[in-house]
Design a binder for these strands. Sequence first.
DNA 1: TCAGTTATTTTGTTTGTACATTATAACAGC
DNA 2: GCTGTTATAATGTACAAACAAAATAACTGA
Lengths: 242, 242
Amino acid sequence: MRYSIDHKSPIPLHAQAETLLRKLIEEEEYQNGKTFPNEVDLAKQLAISRTTLRQAINKLVFEGLLVRKKRTGTKVANTVVSSRSNNWLSFSQEMKLRGIVIKNFELHVTWVYPDEMVANFFEIKTDRKVLKMEKVRGKPNEPFVYFVSYFHPRVGLTGDEDFKKPLYEIMESEHSVVATLSKEEISAQAADTFIADKLKIEVGNPVLFRKRFVFDQGERPIEYNLGYYKAGSFVYSVESTR
Amino acid sequence: MRYSIDHKSPIPLHAQAETLLRKLIEEEEYQNGKTFPNEVDLAKQLAISRTTLRQAINKLVFEGLLVRKKRTGTKVANTVVSSRSNNWLSFSQEMKLRGIVIKNFELHVTWVYPDEMVANFFEIKTDRKVLKMEKVRGKPNEPFVYFVSYFHPRVGLTGDEDFKKPLYEIMESEHSVVATLSKEEISAQAADTFIADKLKIEVGNPVLFRKRFVFDQGERPIEYNLGYYKAGSFVYSVESTR
DNA sequence: TCAGTTATTTTGTTTGTACATTATAACAGC
DNA sequence: GCTGTTATAATGTACAAACAAAATAACTGA
């Protein structure tokens, strides 16, 4: 076993086991369908109890990363699934989880006068400037997303933040604004000249278009986000029960 | 305690405890912030072990329905006003809600041998026929969706049902199969010749593609559904909290 | 060879027990 | 009436042990 567990660490054993399992999930052989070592053995190897190990495994099963079957064993879920409805992973985190390396192609941050749509959502006047952020991201040789975000002045962003970090992290740690609610609208579109240029595709090619309205605890608007995803590069997944 | 647990039932105790807790969560007093009875007492009352009860509680904590703190106890998470993304409306219901009148253009029902994908999802062999249903629907002069559904033999559909009625109604009332879980994957695609013909659009035009996996209470697969929506005619909306 | 039976392996369920940690409540002492 | 300390009540962590259930593999007999 490449990894091990530190019994003297203040970090709970099950938490250590969890991060260890996450590392295993990243590994190619498991990505390719190899079954994990069975609970009993693995617990023995890591010198923790089966119950403790199970605690970690179950969490990952719940997140949909692992699939288990009696007798057959535990494997990495082979879902194409990317973004689960109930979680707040950032784009980079989502991709990392799937073993895709993300490159930032463009990153522009400017102050602009909001258009009607944005001003209306933010409940401000159009003569009050807001921070606009544009990003193009993708795999090393293939841009596949173009993002535009507008931030409410209330958030207190200056424009000098390190926008390579996850957005929600910046807002949370530096400005103590916590995003708790988002409403999204997903549709298909044909790429116009602007989007086609950004994503290096032909005009008229299909793109997945996602509008996102983000709110804080008090249901006050904090971000308006538009995402244009090159077709085939992104699958939006939703799980719902009744 | 209003509810109790049946030790003779084949349903696992932790699962029973889970549904019991879900009922409690619905109750007004707990919605209003009353703390739950503590683990130790509750376990004693229900005559199950603390560990088993904990299994149930933890699941609900994962789902974000409950919040726990040491010494303070367990409470219902005060998520922003009922923000469930309950998209269990049928297509016709959804459209009715938006004031759009729907016309059925085509409706084919046949028995076919499933392809790998379908057989795999249903966990059956490819030599066992399944019911396939195709629909084209839209506004009077403009078809905008092409649906394909496959149904697990378990559902017991004969093919002679009245498929103009909402599907989930048919399954529920006539075959007592209740769909309780669905996983959906949404992406953008270019229309191929087949889809272009069905939707009366040009080949290469963008379509929103939605794959839907539907399960019953026991998380057994019952339906595999594909939907191709003409771009601009359909917006998928999701609301999520954390 | 094939179909039916049995064994084995792996996860699933459940209990009991012990001690740790954290946030509040109660209690000092000044 | 404050302030710091100590008890107490809740969840959190961790282990060991036993049996159940399911899926596959191995076996057996015609």
